[in-house]
Amino acid sequence: MIKVVFPDHLMPNTEGVRETEVDCDSYRSLVRELEKRWPGIEDVLAKTAVAINGQIYQDAWLETIEPSSEVFFMHRIEGG
């Protein structure tokens, strides 16, 4: 199981859930599972950055996720 944490600004999309566990092995399967639980969240996550075990991805679509990983969704960073 991997641990998934949502930031405050996504909690309206997760019925207030901040932290959950998901059984998955890739970012794609993670998003599919989350979409099943909270329909509509996929579109929101498409505009969100994610950190998998500390490594920040603006777009993690191709990433695999090891068991017992930590996944944090977060604001996308832009910059000057």
């Binding site: 944490v5 930031p7 950190a51 998998i52 075990n53 500390g54 490594q55 920040i56 930590e70 944090f72 969704f73 977060m74 604001h75």
Partner: peptide
Amino acid sequence: EGTQAPYGPKFP
């Protein structure tokens, strides 16, 4: 390295 950043993830 390993500290959980205030914005969520652990720093590499």
